[in-house]
Design a protein around this nucleic acid. Structure first.
Length: 435
RNA sequence: GCCGUCGUAGCUCAGUGGCUGGAGCGGCCGGCUGUUAACCGGCAGGUCGCAGGUUCGAAUCCUGCCGACGGCGCCA
């Protein structure tokens, strides 16, 4: 092998190096041989390119024999002339002169036909697939775009704890862990801690894993998911809604811009994402009930929406929608009562288009310590566990609001994924903790 | 927590009471200078999920268990 610098596959596919001797490295994605020729498709993090070997053109016969023997997923370095070749996938190929097998792979277990169960058992290998790779790149862009947007808006990224001493919302869905002689829980939400941080930094956000011990078997649930949460001082429901829609619109536009190739591979038209412009449609909960009634779905005031109702509400929408002002009894204790109508709280859920479900949950927070105590008592909560939180309303309480975004659900929508587990490399579900 | 489906070769499946349990893919050997999930010839590969029962005889019927998948509810 020469000392030529290694080029990434996408640089080769750019076409500027046609006619030159080039060198690249990666893993064998496909291979087949035909007499004195070998066709291999090389995969690296940037894409795939065909490398074609004619025995007579090779500078080493051993290289040719190695290429013939090397199975799918062997790691290789190849060197040859880059040519334009309409018969090759992608339109370019390397006519190989030298072929070095870094490691001869054993028989790769993942072949043409696979069941969901088998792919989950081999997840550590399946993450190499083009589909999961494309989705992983979109997730990366989501984080990058979100941080970019928050930074422009003057938010501080903070680091709330994952191990917590008591339940934040609904004790039944907490994972319990041993904590020396005591018990601790894996965080379900950073919200209460973010609320504490606004009194110094005013506008804060965090990106953390959240854990829910719910035995939910659906295409939009994980027991461990990534949670993007923000909390804003001096902000009411209206300001909070604007932050949510602008953030999501920014993310959608950036993904359309940065991940054109991946979106097309996944069957998502980038134009769908460029259309995500603010403001998003808003419906009060009671209006949403009326809309459902027009579509033939009868719900009682106070009922929560199930998956079929969410689908009905979003089926004619190109944009995500907000449903605001939900019945108090359906929602958490920290949500502020609407002063104009105490049957409802100042909150919103944002529903993604195409039935991807609830992607944001948000509210203005209750600022009055006595109201909070009243609501906690109504839920039979242990007030002592919340004393620290109640303190936040005793020392300079101010109007504030915040939201949580389910990162994987947004990625699922952006990527047109079939199932949320495609959006996280090692999904945790009630029946899956390994690999 | 509830409803449903499925466990047979490394993978995807056929076989549903009777002779030695099959195919395709993948692998190995051989052939082939333009393959695209190549093709042609040959070879190897099995605890029929586990346990018990019915029967002259069970992959096949029954019971229990285990595992997985799909959906509902709950949520982001």
């Amino acid at each position: 092998m020469s000392e030529l610098p290694f080029k990434k596959v996408d640089e080769l596919l750019g076409g500027e190096l046609v006619g030159e001797r080039v060198r690249t490295r990666g893993w064998i994605y496909r291979t087949r041989h035909k007499g004195k020729m070998v066709f291999t498709v090389i995969r690296d993090s940037s894409g795939i390119i065909q490398a074609t070997l004619f025995k007579g053109d090779m500078e080493s016969e051993d290289d040719f024999n190695d290429a013939k023997k090397a199975l799918v997923e062997s790691s290789v370095e190849v060197e040859g002339i880059l040519v334009e070749e309409p018969r090759a996938p992608g339109g370019y190929e390397i006519q190989v002169r030298r072929f070095h097998v870094v490691h001869f792979a054993e028989i790769f277990p993942i072949t043409k036909d696979q069941s969901e169960e088998f792919l989950m058992d081999k997840r550590h290998l399946w993450v190499r697939s083009r589909r999961l790779t494309a989705i992983a790149k979109i997730k990366h862009s989501l984080f990058k775009a979100a941080r970019e947007w928050f930074d422009e808006q003057g938010f501080y990224e903070v680091t709330p704890p994952i191990l917590t001493g008591s339940a934040a919302e609904g004790g039944a869905t907490l994972f319990e862990v041993k904590y020396f002689g005591d018990k601790a829980y894996l965080s379900q939400s950073a919200q209460l801690y973010l609320e504490a941080m606004i009194f110094s930094l005013e506008n804060v956000y965090s990106i953390t894993p959240s854990f829910r011990a719910e035995k939910s078997r659906t295409r939009k649930h994980l027991t461990e998911f990534w949670h993007l949460e923000a909390e804003e001082a001096w902000t009411g429901l209206e300001g909070n809604i604007k932050i949510q829609e602008e953030l999501l619109s920014h993310i959608a536009h950036r993904v359309a811009e940065w991940n054109r190739k991946e979106l097309e591979f996944l069957g998502r038209d980038p134009k769908d994402l460029l259309k995500i412009e603010t403001p998003f449609p808003r419906y009060r909960y009671s209006e949403a009930l009326d809309n459902l009634r027009k579509k033939g779905v009868e719900l009682e005031w106070g009922d929560d929406f199930g998956a079929p109702e969410e689908r009905k509400l979003t089926e004619d929408e190109e944009l995500p929608i907000f449903v605001t002002h939900w019945p108090t009894e359906a929602k958490a204790f920290y949500m502020r009562w609407d002063p104009k109508d105490t049957r409802v709280v100042l909150n919103d859920d944002m529903l993604a288009p195409e039935g991807y479900g609830e992607i944001f949950g948000a509210s203005e927070r209750e600022t009055d310590v006595n109201h909070l105590i009243e609501r906690l008592k109504a839920e039979d909560a242990n007030i002592e566990d919340y004393e620290w939180y109640l303190d936040l309303r005793r020392y300079g309480s101010v109007q504030h609001s915040g939201f949580g975004m389910g990162v994987e659900r947004v990625v699922a929508w952006l990527s047109k994924a079939e199932h949320i587990r495609e959006t996280i490399p090692f999904p945790r579900t009630p029946s899956r903790i390994r690999p």
